[in-house]
């Protein structure tokens, strides 16, 4: 599905990614983890073409992304911070995005699922962070693309919505889609992900199942396994 080879990216003097090699196979949920500033978002944005790498190649669905930007129609992306034009109504925003991408009826189901009906006529500037995130999720999931990239999808969500989001991700997985997630919530990651990609100092430190990680680090649970990686490397 996605192949990354020898990816380098520098912001000014700050080397964020230094030689990332990663292959993501078709189907399944992949969690990209790492400490703050390790380059998770940069990696994801590189895949999306929002960050232009200094070096390296990225192939999505067999196509080099430098050559053609059409591949982006096959990706649904949930940005980390939901920044929306504040003077737009929720309804209008959904309509606009549909107009810009393609028509879909999926939005109705998702709006019901996240109980957004009362907010449809409100301006986005007046919404709480959690509600905005729900709108963000609706916008992402309403298109039926084979690759879904979620950057911190849990931010600001209440427990019920979180459960719904998990269910949603699971259903998408059963449809055979590939889902790429970054998150800080370890329990969330542990719950849903099939495989983990751990980035440290701009490189892939670990890639594999949670079980494999636990074995490798000799820790009984996932959170401690992650913590041990970090302490080992900083010690």
């Amino acid at each position: 599905m996605v192949t990354i080879e020898n990816l380098h990216k520098k912001f000014g003097k700050n080397q964020v990614l230094s030689g990332v090699d990663l292959t993501i196979t078709d189907g399944g949920i992949f969690a990209v983890l790492g400490p703050n500033g390790s380059g998770k978002t940069t990696l994801i944005k590189s895949v999306l073409g929002m960050v232009i790498p200094n070096k390296g190649t990225i192939t999505v669905l067999g196509e080099d992304i430098k050559k053609n930007s059409d591949y982006r129609h096959k990706i649904d992306y949930l940005p980390q911070i939901a920044n929306f034009p504040s003077n737009l109504k929720v309804k209008e925003l959904i309509k606009m995005i549909k107009d810009l991408r393609k028509s879909t009826t999926e939005d109705q189901r998702l709006i019901e699922l996240f109980k957004l009906e009362p907010f449809l006529d409100k301006k986005l500037g007046n919404l709480s962070g959690g509600t905005k995130q729900k709108v963000n999720i609706v916008l992402t999931f309403m298109f039926n693309s084979p690759l879904i990239i979620l950057d911190e999808p849990t931010t600001g969500l209440d427990p019920i919505s979180l459960i719904r989001l998990k269910d949603l991700i699971q259903t998408e997985k059963t449809k055979g889609k590939t889902i790429l997630i970054t998150s800080h919530i370890m329990s969330f990651v542990e719950d849903i992900s099939d495989e983990i990609v751990f980035i440290l100092e701009g490189k892939i430190y670990f890639k594999g199942s949670i079980q494999k990680l636990k074995t490798k680090t000799n820790q009984p649970d996932f959170e401690h396994a992650i913590a041990s990686i970090l302490t080992d490397n900083h010690a």
């Binding site: 930007s69 982006r72 940005p79 920044n83 929306f84 034009p85 995005i97 810009l100 991408r101």
Partner: peptide, 9 residues
Amino acid sequence: ELLLAQPLK
């Protein structure tokens, strides 16, 4: 930013 998240040129 919203637009950039969409598959647009």
